[in-house]
Structures are given as C-alpha cells and as structure tokens.
C-alpha cells in the first residue's frame, strides 16, 4: 500500500506546531497503525531527520498509552479499538491520513503526537481510590453483590484512561473518564463509605484541570476503545448532585 501521512509536528509545549507530509511506499495491510509509524520513523532516521514522537506501550489494546487522532477521530475509524489495534487494512491504497495529537487545554502537547495526560492522574489522586486496605479477597458469599451490579462495575473498571473521550468531545470534557472511575467504586460496597467525598473531590479536580463541561453529545462513548457507557455519566451526575446536597462539611 502507498500511504500519505500528514503528521502534526511540534517541538515542545511552548512552541506552535505544523503538519508535515510524509510518503510511505511499502505499507503492509497487516501492519498495525503504530507499526506503520515505526516504519516511518526508521525512514526518517535513515534520512537523518528527527523521528515522530508518539506514545505507546503494550500494543495489545489494554494499557491506554497510544493516543492518535486519526482522520478526525480518536484511535481512528474503527469502533472499540485503540490505535495499536487499528490495522492498515482499514485504509485504502493511496489514502491520505491526517494524524494529530489529543487536543485539550488539560492535555498539553509534549512533543509531536505525545501529550501530557497527568491531569488524569491528579483526578485519580483526588479521590479515585479506597483509603483503607480492603484486605485479601473474601469468601465469595461474604459480600452479596448482584451479578448485574458486579458486571456494571467491571464494565466501568474497563476504562484504560487513554483520554479518547476528552479527545472526541467537542468541549474536551473528561466526564466519561471521571464517571467510569467514580462508578467502578460507587457500585461496590468497598467504595461506598467514601462515595460522596470522592464524587465531589474528583469533579472539583476535573474542573480545576481545565476540562470542558458535558453537553451529552455522546461522542466520548461512541469513540471509547473500551465502550464505556453513558450511564456512567448519569451516575456521576447523580452521585455529585446528591453529594453536593448531603455531604458533611469538614
């Protein structure tokens, strides 16, 4: 396959970037999108140019590191996959592919396609945990949890924190991420003692980081590689609303 890439190149956070066009003549359709970038970088190194910086780690679709905005969509055209699980067979010979970094005030570009997502870490540090040691796994029947609830908590916990929701949202809102992280604990008994404090702290941190507000377009869930449901956002709204009215003031 012949592919033309328009890639965002940016030296660092403080400079503005621009698109560079690269042509690749021998792209296999079995390559993943990231492997195609490996080929591009080898080509650039051989030409004595600086390779494109992009985030990646497991390349198995579970770590949440890869973060490319491909042809106007986070993680590209496929549904429910990360960029590393996107293969070149999803494109046609001769295609022009535009690749940008996640764009949000809360995700400043570090270099090229790599962005700083530590705002997510700070939201987690604000309350995305259970304070006490929950101990070893208990006997299965000690804590009765309905199968549907357990499944729902598991679906919420599937969030890998890649930030595609923020990238997809026209407001760069982090509601899907925060709601999944609040839900995975709020649904289970271990998370409930701190539920109110958690909802308020995480939402406050989310706002402080400069993410936008949720207008329920649903783009986040549609683009999420883990298909996190919008029901999480409704749950976060419920949790936050009730916590705002009833949480004890310190």
């Amino acid at each position: 396959m012949k592919i033309t890439l328009k890639v965002w190149r940016q030296k660092n956070t403080n400079t503005s970037g621009q698109f560079e066009t690269y042509k690749l003549d021998h792209v296999s359709e079995d390559m993943s999108f990231l492997e195609m970038f490996d080929v591009l970088n080898e080509q650039l190194i051989n030409e004595g140019k600086e390779p494109v910086v992009f985030d990646h780690d497991c390349r198995e679709g579970i770590c949440g590191m890869c973060s490319m905005y491909i042809n106007g969509r986070p993680h590209g055209p496929k549904h429910g996959v990360t960029t590393c699980q996107l293969h070149m067979r999803s494109f046609k010979d001769g295609d022009i592919i535009v690749v940008e970094p996640w764009r949000a005030a809360a995700f400043p570009v570090l270099k090229d396609l790599s962005v700083d997502r530590s705002s997510f870490d700070r939201i987690m540090s604000a309350g995305g945990f259970v304070s006490v040691n929950a101990g070893n796994a208990q006997d299965a029947n000690n804590l009765p949890i309905g199968k549907e609830i357990a499944d729902e908590a598991f679906m919420s916990a599937a969030c890998i924190g890649c930030g595609a929701c923020v990238a997809a949202c026209k407001n760069a809102s982090a509601m899907l991420f925060v709601s999944a992280k609040v839900s995975q604990l709020a649904l289970l008994p271990q998370g409930q003692p701190e539920a109110k404090r958690r909802a308020i702290a995480m939402v406050n941190q989310m706002d402080a980081e400069g993410f936008g507000a949720c207008t329920n377009t649903g783009a986040c869930s549609a683009e999420c590689p883990k298909e996190i449901s919008l029901s999480n956002i409704a749950r976060l709204n419920r949790e936050y609303l009730s916590a705002s009215f009833t949480a004890q003031v310190d």
């Binding site: 026209k170 407001n171 760069a172």
Partner: peptide, 13 residues
C-alpha cells in the same frame, strides 16, 4: 467549553 480546547483540530469527523 471553547477554552477547554485552545488549539482546534485540523480535521473533525
């Protein structure tokens, strides 16, 4: 909400 994305995408689908 516009301020939350100061640099716009070149292409949005």
């Amino acid at each position: 909400n516009k301020k939350a994305r100061p640099v716009a995408y070149a292409m949005v689908d």
